[in-house]
């Protein structure tokens, strides 16, 4: 369980990093927190010829903005930064809620927000947040920077819109100002394990009815999914257990779930309904 030989590059500026990555092209891999990449290399499932280590790029390690204006998250921000987000409001509460289900404390000190998105594990909590809220990704290369919407960024298991010479440098989360309620529910075998299913819901409730809603699920298929059809169903309905049960059934119908050793398709689909109901109920509570 030792990695195959590789070259290691440690740039100190983004420009330098982009140039290095452009130089190695297909055989290059970007190293951030290394919590997924390094084990994969040790298993020799990943065999990059060159690693470009972003850890010297302090310019990518910052969070700015707030719940009212939206938040800008640098790619090198560690998960642990959201144990107590540097801003307030519903978005901060949501991120603080979600981060506790990301692996374990030591991993959260090292793993990065951007690394999670670029890795695109179907069970990644941050990918679910990005997909559900409609994040905007900033992808940089020597040719310049382009932005990609979350809906276009996640292409499948471990697959994104990133080109081999691009680095995800920044993620913008849209505003979630006061008045929004949030709910997140994840089911895993043990605390900190990969989600067997998880759901994230944000709601605005007014006059006994749901006025606005975002709903997404993760850990159930090849990528996180925002469920627009279920959102459309929920809009205008009363936030009751009956509504949420119906929404859960719609969600199950909307997603073709995957199977693994911890959950068959039937069980995962069943769980999908439960996590949707629980996330909605938590948001409505």
């Amino acid at each position: 369980m030792k990695p195959a030989a590789f070259a290691y590059l440690a740039p100190t500026t983004l420009g330098e990093a982009l140039a290095m990555l452009d130089g190695v092209q297909d055989d290059g891999k970007v190293l951030a927190g290394g919590q997924s990449l390094v084990p994969a290399m040790n298993f020799r499932l990943a065999r990059p010829a060159t690693l470009v280590d972003l850890n010297g790029l302090s310019e990518l390690d910052h969070v700015s903005g707030d719940s009212d204006r939206g938040v800008v998250i640098g790619a090198l921000v560690r998960h642990a930064a959201f144990h107590a987000p540097p801003f307030e409001g519903p978005l901060a509460e949501l991120l603080a809620k979600v981060v506790r289900d990301i692996a374990h404390y030591p991993i959260r000190q090292r793993g990065t927000f951007g690394g999670s998105l670029a890795h695109a594990d179907p069970a990644s909590e941050w990918c679910l947040v990005a997909a559900t809220l409609g994040a905007t990704m900033h992808l940089a290369s020597v040719a310049g920077t382009r932005t990609v919407a979350a809906a276009d960024f996640f292409r499948g298991t471990f697959t994104t819109a990133l080109a081999p010479n691009e680095i995800l440098v920044r993620v913008d989360l849209p505003p979630l100002p006061a008045g929004w309620r949030t709910g997140f529910y994840e089911f895993s075998r043990r605390k900190g394990d990969f989600a067997l299913a998880m759901a994230l819901a944000t709601l605005q409730i007014d006059g006994g009815a749901i006025r606005a809603v975002r709903l997404g699920v993760g850990g159930v298929s090849d990528r996180p999914r925002r469920l627009e059809t279920v959102e459309a169903f929920l809009a205008g309905k009363p936030p009751t257990p009956a509504t949420f049960a119906e929404a859960a059934e719609l969600a199950r119908g909307a997603v073709a779930v995957t199977a693994d050793i911890h959950a068959s398709e039937a069980y995962r689909s069943d769980l999908l309904g439960t996590v949707v109901r629980r996330a909605l109920a938590e948001a409505a509570a």
Partner: peptide, 16 residues
Amino acid sequence: LLTVSLADYLPPTALE
């Protein structure tokens, strides 16, 4: 064998 890492084979932790 499908359970060849500690992501697949799950002993309880202090939390369980």
